[in-house]
């Protein structure tokens, strides 16, 4: 691979050792535009690893959101389309109904899924469409400059809540996964995080289960992933992953919510 001539380490016994971790085949070898320490890169990679393991790359269609992940199709080496802001579940519904043999998933942020796209996600979930939804929750509007999102936790400082989110003025954070779990059409909802190696592996397991549900025609699956946004949390990447562990999981507890 061309990577080898610009890598840092050399080892004389390298020929004897086997490569156990590298870029998944479903992922393009390009530099991503995300900020340093952003969770999107990890989640993109996990989706690609799952698609490779399930050998569904040729029949997968992803639907990218509006938000920081709007350019996700530049990084994924499988078919991806783009939807209007908040509408990936509606677009995915259309694709899945016309091409039922395809594996269709949406990749949405909290601004896309829990704010402008609330109606679409609720009705898609309620209809029990056989699609997979990857919901990336970083509790802030990343692409537009760090404003308060519906998922911003109480006391969290953002551009539009400089003294912290106040329940009386700004309302309460939206627990959309718990809300969707109440709907009869939903078969699987799990909340995970990408704040440490263990949780990254659990996230991969959850994504795999959500894809398997679709392959087995079980119905609507959603994985909510708590993801760091160091830039708009005004923290270093290392502080940001700690903040998920100490603050965010208090309001958004990890684990299987349904299924």
């Amino acid at each position: 691979m061309k990577i080898t001539n610009k890598t840092s380490s050399t080892n004389q016994t390298s020929k004897a050792l086997r490569k156990v971790f590298s870029l998944p085949a479903s992922m393009r070898d390009v530099a991503m535009h995300y900020c340093s320490g952003c969770g999107h890169g990890i989640i993109h990679r996990l989706i690609c690893e799952v698609i490779d393991e399930l050998e569904i790359r040729e029949k997968t269609i992803g639907v990218a959101p509006v938000g920081c992940a709007v350019l996700a199709y530049d990084y994924w080496n499988f078919d991806t389309t783009e939807a209007s802001h908040g509408r990936p579940p509606a677009v995915a519904t259309g694709i899945k109904r016309i091409l039922p043999e395809r594996i269709v998933f949406t990749y949405q942020g909290d601004g896309d899924l829990a704010a402008i796209g609330t109606a679409e996600i609720i009705h898609t979930a309620n209809r029990g469409e056989n699609i997979t939804v990857i919901f990336v929750n970083n509790a802030v509007y990343g692409m537009t400059g760090g404003q308060m999102a519906p998922t911003t936790i109480l006391g969290q400082k953002t551009e539009t809540t400089p003294w912290g989110r106040d329940a009386q003025r700004d309302g309460f954070p939206l627990k959309i996964s718990e809300m969707l779990a109440l709907l009869s059409g939903v078969v699987y909802v799990e909340r995970t995080a990408v704040n440490n190696a263990k949780n990254v592996l659990l996230t991969k397991k959850a994504i795999k289960k959500a894809f398997l549900n679709q392959i087995e025609n079980k119905g609507f699956s959603l994985v909510e992933i708590l993801s760091p946004c160091p830039t708009y949390w005004r923290m270093s990447p290392v502080e940001a992953v700690k903040w998920i562990e100490t603050e965010m999981v208090k309001y958004y507890p990890l684990g299987v919510i349904k299924g």
Binding site: I3, R18, K19, F21, M27, M32, G41, I42, V200
Partner: peptide, 12 residues
Amino acid sequence: LMCPDVCIEVYK
């Protein structure tokens, strides 16, 4: 696993 930019290859 934690690298957001998939910069690391592991040999074992």
